[in-house]
Design a protein around this nucleic acid. Sequence first.
RNA 1: GGGCGCAUAGCUCAGUCGGAAGAGCAACUGGCUUUUAACCAGUAGGUCCCAGGUUCGAGCCCUGGUGCGCUCACCA
Length: 496
Amino acid sequence: MTELSHPDRQAKVEAIRAAGRDPYPPRGVPAEAIEALIEAGGTPEEPGPRIDTEVTVAGRLLGMRDFGKLIFAPVLDRTGRIQVGLRRDALTDWWPQRKELDGGDLVAVTGTLGRTQKGQLTVWATEVKLLAKAVAPPPEKWHGLVDVEQRYRRRYVDLWASEGVREVFVKRSRMLSLSRRFLEERGFLEVETPTLHPIAGGATARPFVTHHNALDVDLFLRIAPELYLKRLIVGGLERVFEVSRNFRNEGLSVRHNPEFTMLELYQAQADYRDMIELTEALVSMLAVELTGATEVPFRAKAYDLAAPFERGRYDELFERASGVSLFDEAAVRQKARELDAEVPAELGHFKQVDRLFEILVEDELDRPTFVTHHPAAISPLAKVDPDNPDFAERFELHIGGMEICNGFTELNDPVEQEERFRAQVASLDPESPGEVDIDYIQALEYGMPPTAGLGIGMDRLCMVLTNQDSIRDVLLFPTMRRRPAQVSEEASSPDC
RNA sequence: GGGCGCAUAGCUCAGUCGGAAGAGCAACUGGCUUUUAACCAGUAGGUCCCAGGUUCGAGCCCUGGUGCGCUCACCA
């Protein structure tokens, strides 16, 4: 037992046991979805087919309004909420047990679907069963859980005590299943690739390091599935995708969590332009399916997610915003000094350009926009633009100042890929991989067809589609520091 | 990691100038058969985040720490 357990409620548990009943019975009760009953109840003017029939609902008792010989109480299940009416006349045998119930308890109620004098749809109970006693009291009924720390740490309370929370996560789940269906309809195969990587590749990020005892090797939690998925393209699967949990050992913010979900996909015989079109089709479909329209509210603004989205070349956006050419190293350096945004010189000129690009362009890209043709120097896995080899056949989708997607025509020349990997490893960037992924180069040596790939940050896309300001509000259990109390509690009193 | 802010009853929050720890909801007792955050009367409930310091006296002032939020840096 913990400090949350309330003595009055514990006493009720004991009283129920003393009376020979089980406060935690092993079996539930078959019940109907509340949402369906509300639908089948009709309106006060036009009663539906289930009015005056016997129904059973099961769920959490959210409170009780006790009138002495009559009690009204809302019951919540996964689909909705309905009122139950407990009358002494109809529950003669059970009536003395009513004091054993508290708000927060899990119950099953059988009765007749009807209405109150004011027309409220109500299950008039003929049978009440306690399914599980809540010894911890629920949060205040009107405000719910508003302390954000408590909401994230106790999501199991937040989901039923705070308005709209469950809806966000239902939408997130639908977003994933709609995306899967969308890709499967286009011939993509869902695959699973390793989470434990011997080399942290496919992105530029600090990895989490772990150790495998039997093999006695250090392994990295994946920062991206990219290099494995492209091996599968070499393997002839041609169209693959993975819903990939990625791990990056970096800071937390309103848009960053150390573990996050990317939908990454690769398609043979496609290039970056096909990926742009696929992105537009997927995102606008999700907007319609989840919100009912292509125009979605986000951060007190309206975002139009109808295809096509705006497009802008990286170099043009950069030069328009900064007033300098991105090839002019002296001018770029000068601009960086002005903005107090200098990066170490050893990381290279285009890292500095990209740093300025983030400040001057990305943060201002509010409306859905594809940025295209990033510098090849910062796109080591992308094919260069044949018309202009300084730039890559690459794009990113930005919405509301956030990068949502990243995609490109994949580099499939093994010699060029090896050169780019070697340049990365040689650079002094602490986030570069520590060694060249020779196995990946060898895969390319067997021949990878012309291929394009795309990665979508599903958490951020979910933020936009559910109008949540923080990534933590679209993660069921966002990463949190462990509380000292949790540590000492277990260490000092294991028998509690 | 830096800056700013928050931490008081199970929950949501007041707490004035440094002078006896408060309210609503939840709980408990009693009343009430159609409520909609039901209502009425009563009872109980506190490590004021933690540790120091200043003071006759600290929820309040000072120092350090912990947790969380926002923000900057890093990143998607």
